[in-house]
Write a protein that binds this DNA or RNA. Structure first.
Lengths: 350, 350
DNA sequence: CTGAAAGCGCTTACAG
DNA sequence: CTGAAAGCGCTTACAG
């Protein structure tokens, strides 16, 4: 048998606790707790002694105890339900921009960010639901990116909990807090822009099964109708989010369809993929075909050619999601928020 | 004054607890706890009664209490220290691919994933350190993506804690667990590939201040020297990670330098940006200039032209990071792991 | 300004 | 197979 000292050294080192600090300083745990929390109740001299020893011992407050007692996790769960998105494998840079914006906003507000690819109502392999993030104290609120194809579960979940905010389309929304852009207006704006550049035969690339894409597609149809032009079903191509798959679809479409001179793409990634397909087919952008994207992801401006797009103001959207959610958590009158889409004209549209 | 019922309805609804279930079923809390944990100790009939009532009440176990008691958070903190990366604003899709891979691996292993842009040793606005994720029970382990320019703090932190794994370069690594590719070999492979395609004047694009990039650049030099060719300092261009900034740098370089016929880019994003700059300058890829990237991000294969690149096997890397970390947490003999880089030949290199 | 006490909601060794 | 008891590490109303 080894000597106990050796054994202890091999064990997990136990972190220091408030009670240890209290004992060594001959004060109560209450005082240590108050001192470390910066309570004005404790004498400056006492606080300094406590802080000094805490630093010396490398003390970190036990967050699980603190959260249990305070009934607050100071954590927000951000859900990117990729299963819902036609298995796009989360590859769209839109998500990265959104994650970055949310991380910044949450950090500034003093919250930790939990990232999940599963919805709170998802069941695990054995068909059991995961612990509800809100009821289990895992998170104080949930941000869900995207409404998904089937909204019934989202609606049911949001009906149970006030601390839920969704990024999605205002028109499609149910009775839950939502931040998002008017996708129909954005789709219409993009289409009108191409029409104003004298493009006459416009395809829409994007899968209308997704609610947000569907709205963008409605905007495309609105603009065509307003211009007195026909809406041709053949020109609506259900390209997937994922560039690798979209490329096949678009290439096939270009081979089959009568020549087009404009493309309204449902996302920037689809737009860039379409440009690749066009160039491979020997067509120039914007010479032969003008292209608009949607999202204004970070790389849109350094694309080749730089992409005309509808900005979703992702940074602003992330801030609004956090502000709305924190409002709901504080119990205040949290309000949904519609962000206006805006056309950013670059080179790809001529 | 309102009647108390109304008041209660306005209050936050308190989640059900094990003690409530126990009381209603006239069993002990211990039994409820065991039943819900699926302990073989409890009689099937009892377990079913408990499970039924738990379901009826919408019971979710209080994770803060559970974690406090078990001294396990079942959570891993993933750190993407963007401040370190020359302020690249986390815009490189490499991060999204890595985040996705880590999320999958952690979910499969039953862990939650906390995402942070701040290192564990970062201080807040007031200069106070955040609670240490490991000592505070916030996380059972930390995964840090990238070694950063200044490794001293990383080394100090890792020296204090076994439950830390870093994604980075094996050559540069200190005494900590690491998963990463041999960047020098990768840089050399890419360069040799262009030389084998009869390219003779090759530029390297990427900022060697970053340790991983520096190694890729060493590989570039190795290959040139091995081919008996000169290493020209002017052909090493410290392009930033961020495409928007990189574009300026690269365009300026193309305007100044003697003609080149090949580019070894330090990342896929830099490669795609270089292609944009080349095309804007009226040069064709790969006709006039052959280009290789690095990372094999998701969009490399649908780029225009599809990008020849060095794959980092990001999905495999994410799994290895998680496997290594969980090994360290279990206390087993966790081992660092080197992933072999591999050349993926597509169109951009001719 | 400080302390004693209660309690947040679990888990688990111990006893039966 | 079940229960009583202790305790994880905090916070905070209450009393002084």
């Amino acid at each position: 048998m080894r000597p106990p000292e050796r054994q202890e050294a091999e064990e997990e080192r136990q972190p220091a606790t408030m009670s240890q600090i209290a004992r060594r300083l001959k004060v109560s745990e209450s005082t240590v707790s108050r001192a470390l929390a910066g309570s004005p109740l404790v004498k400056a001299e006492t606080r300094e002694k406590v802080e000094a020893l805490a630093r010396e011992l490398g003390f970190s407050v036990n967050l699980n105890a603190q959260r249990l007692k305070r009934r607050r996790s100071q954590t927000i769960e951000v859900v990117i339900p990729v299963e819902e998105y036609g298995r796009q494998h989360m590859s769209d840079p839109f998500f990265l921009d959104m994650i970055g914006a949310l991380a910044d906003a949450l950090t500034d507000a003093g919250y930790d960010m939990l990232l999940s690819k599963r919805t709170p109502w998802a069941v695990d392999a054995e068909g059991r639901p995961r612990p509800n993030p809100l009821l289990s104290g895992r998170a104080d609120g949930v941000i869900i990116i995207g409404q998904g194809r089937d909204q019934s579960q989202l609606r049911a979940f949001a009906a149970q909990h006030r601390q839920v905010v969704v990024w999605g389309d205002p028109e499609v929304a149910g009775d839950y807090l939502l931040v998002g852009v008017d996708n129909r207006a954005g789709g219409r704006t993009a289409t009108e822009h191409l029409l104003s550049r004298s493009r006459r035969r416009l395809a829409f690339l994007g899968d209308p099964k997704e609610p947000e894409i569907s709205q963008r597609c409605e905007g495309y149809k609105d603009a065509l109708r307003a211009a007195g032009m026909p809406v041709e079903a053949d020109l609506i191509v259900p390209a997937r989010f994922d560039a690798v798959y979209a490329l096949e679809t678009i290439t096939a479409f270009l081979g089959k369809a009568d020549p087009i001179d404009g493309i309204v793409a449902a996302t920037d990634v689809i737009a860039m993929t379409a440009i690749t397909a066009l160039q491979q087919a020997g067509l120039s952008v914007p010479g032969d075909v003008a292209v608009t994207g949607y999202d204004d992801i970070h790389s849109a401006r350094s694309a080749s050619p730089p992409l005309t797009t509808i900005t979703q103001r992702i940074a602003e959207g992330g801030q609004a999601l956090v502000a709305t959610l924190l409002g709901a958590i504080e119990g205040g009158p949290a309000r949904s928020r519609v962000i206006e889409p805006e056309l950013i004209v670059r080179v790809s549209s001529g």
